[in-house]
Structures are given as C-alpha cells and as structure tokens.
Amino acid sequence: PDLGLTQLFADPNLIENLKKNPKTSEMMKDPQLVAKLIGYKQNPQAIGQDLFTDPRLMTIMATLMGVDL
C-alpha cells in the first residue's frame, strides 16, 4: 500500500502550492528536489527510500498533510 501518498502527490498544483508555502518555498528553488517531487506523481513508492536520505521530504510531507512540525 502507498499509505495515501498517491493522493498527496497527485495534486496538479503540488509544486506551485509548495512554492507559495513559507515552510517549503526555499526548498522549491532546488531543481533536483522539484524533479523528485514530479517523479513521485508517477511512482509514489519511490519516496519511501528518499525519506531516509533527504530530510526536506519529511517537511514537505508534513506540509502536504497539514501537520505543523
């Protein structure tokens, strides 16, 4: 199971919303991170391994779920 990750990354406004959010806007200036996020739309399971190697993803996930870290 993808634990709902498919829906989190399926939002067509995902990148724009993250660019507008004060907690994630600075991160979204990294083209490699943006490319990763776009890739998760097609393969949400890929985030599982990346969560352990890129701490920014935890902040992004929390933001998408509405959790304040």
Rank of each mutant, 00 (worst) to 15 (best):
P22L: 05
E16R: 06
D11V: 04
Q7Y: 07
Q45H: 13
D2H: 14
T59Y: 15
L69A: 13
F52R: 11
N17G: 07
L3M: 14
E26K: 07
D50F: 04
K19C: 07
K20T: 11
I15V: 08
G48M: 15
D30I: 02
V34T: 04
R56L: 08
L5V: 10
M27F: 14
P31W: 06
P12F: 04
I60W: 02
I38H: 08
N21K: 03
M28R: 00
M65F: 10
P44A: 07
L37A: 00
L8P: 03
G48T: 15
N43S: 06
N21V: 02
L64D: 00
V67N: 12
K19G: 04
L8Q: 04
K29S: 09
P12N: 07
L14F: 08
S25C: 08
L18R: 00
P22T: 04
N17I: 14
L64I: 10
T6A: 15
M61R: 03
V34N: 02
I38V: 10
K20V: 09
M61A: 12
A35L: 13
K20I: 09
M61S: 03
L69F: 06
T53P: 03
I47D: 04
Q49E: 14
K29I: 03
L33D: 00
K36F: 07
G4A: 14
P1L: 12
I38E: 13
T63E: 09
D2V: 15
T53K: 14
K41C: 08
D68Q: 03
P31C: 05
L18V: 01
D2R: 05
T6G: 14
G4S: 15
G48D: 10
S25N: 09
D30T: 01
N21L: 04
D11G: 04
M27Q: 02
P44R: 03
V34H: 02
P55V: 10
N21A: 04
K41D: 03
F52C: 09
Q42N: 15
P22R: 05
R56E: 04
N13Q: 12
F52M: 13
I60Q: 00
T59I: 13
T63S: 07
K20W: 06
Q49T: 13
E16F: 08
I60G: 00
D54Q: 01
R56N: 04
K23A: 13
N13P: 02
I15S: 01
L37W: 01
F52G: 09
A35D: 11
G39C: 10
T59V: 13
P12D: 09
F9T: 02
P44Q: 05
L5P: 07
L69P: 13
L33I: 06
I60A: 02
Q7E: 14
L64E: 01
V67D: 13
N43E: 05
P22K: 07
L33A: 01
A35W: 05
L14R: 01
L5C: 10
A62M: 14
I60T: 01
V67C: 09
R56D: 06
L37Y: 00
G39N: 14
T24F: 07
A10Q: 14
K23D: 05
T24N: 01
I38R: 10
M28I: 05
D54F: 02
V67R: 08
Q42T: 15
N43W: 06
L18K: 00
L69R: 06
N21I: 04
G66A: 07
E16S: 08
G48C: 11
G66H: 09
A10Y: 06
G4V: 15
L5Q: 05
E16G: 06
M61E: 01
T53D: 13
L69H: 14
D68R: 02
F9D: 01
Q32Y: 14
Q7L: 11
A10E: 11
Q42L: 11
T24G: 01
T6C: 11
M27Y: 12
L14K: 01
L3C: 11
R56K: 05
L3N: 12
M58G: 05
P31T: 10
D2K: 12
Q45D: 13
M27H: 04
P1N: 11
T59A: 10
P55W: 12
I60V: 07
D50V: 04
G4D: 15
K41G: 12
D2E: 13
K36G: 02
T24D: 00
Q42V: 11
P55G: 07
D30K: 01
D68L: 02
L8W: 08
D68T: 02
T59G: 04
N21E: 04
T6N: 12
P22V: 05
Y40R: 01
K41R: 14
Q7S: 11
N21G: 03
G66D: 11
Q49I: 13
L51Q: 07
P44I: 10
T63I: 15
R56P: 02
S25L: 08
G48A: 15
L64G: 02
V67M: 15
F9C: 05
Q42S: 14
P44D: 04
G39Q: 13
L3K: 12
V67S: 13
P1V: 15
P1D: 10
L57F: 08
D30L: 01
